[in-house]
Amino acid sequence: MSSDGAYTRLRVPVSVTPARLEHLCWALVVVSLVGDVVTTFVGLHLGLAESNPIALRAIEGYGLLGMLALKGFAVGVGLLCRPLLPEEYRPIIPAGLAIPWLGAVCINLYMISLVV
């Protein structure tokens, strides 16, 4: 660590470019998306209920395809907004998708553990 006036900066031992960070975040989006879809449908199969009203309607109306379309729409919006940001801020787009989906995976796993 080094001190720059009143701020402390942590030096990462590896060179992480914004582009590399963005790629890692998009990989996390894929993992979290798959995890959310799988744990949601496992939970539904075990008798749990979907708490997101938009996802509930998509699943009730179209099943897995509805859920995938909903996730695809979210990813599409992220991809459309991506060019609007400077390169160093672009990792926020996939992070903004992955973090809530990872939270959903954790909640789903917890709920599944209560009924299994």
Rank of each mutant, 00 (worst) to 15 (best):
2 S>P: 00
3 S>Y: 08
5 G>C: 05
6 A>D: 08
6 A>E: 13
8 T>S: 06
10 L>N: 03
11 R>P: 00
13 P>N: 14
15 S>E: 14
17 T>F: 11
19 A>P: 00
20 R>M: 11
21 L>F: 13
22 E>P: 02
23 H>R: 15
24 L>C: 12
26 W>L: 07
27 A>R: 13
27 A>W: 14
28 L>Y: 05
31 V>P: 07
33 L>N: 10
33 L>D: 08
34 V>L: 14
36 D>H: 12
38 V>W: 15
40 T>E: 09
40 T>K: 06
40 T>Q: 04
41 F>M: 14
43 G>F: 12
45 H>A: 07
46 L>P: 09
47 G>N: 04
51 S>A: 10
54 I>A: 09
54 I>E: 02
54 I>F: 15
55 A>K: 00
56 L>G: 07
57 R>F: 10
57 R>H: 11
60 E>D: 11
60 E>L: 08
62 Y>H: 13
62 Y>E: 02
64 L>R: 02
65 L>K: 04
65 L>F: 12
66 G>F: 09
67 M>N: 04
68 L>H: 00
68 L>E: 03
71 K>S: 00
72 G>P: 03
73 F>K: 00
74 A>F: 06
74 A>W: 03
75 V>C: 10
76 G>Y: 05
77 V>G: 08
77 V>C: 11
79 L>Y: 11
79 L>Q: 01
80 L>N: 10
81 C>F: 09
81 C>Q: 09
81 C>G: 08
83 P>C: 11
86 P>M: 00
86 P>Y: 05
88 E>I: 12
89 Y>L: 15
90 R>M: 05
92 I>W: 11
92 I>S: 11
93 I>Q: 14
96 G>K: 05
96 G>T: 07
97 L>I: 15
100 P>F: 02
101 W>L: 12
102 L>Q: 10
102 L>I: 09
105 V>T: 12
105 V>A: 00
107 I>F: 14
107 I>D: 09
108 N>E: 03
108 N>W: 05
114 L>H: 05
115 V>Y: 01
116 V>I: 13
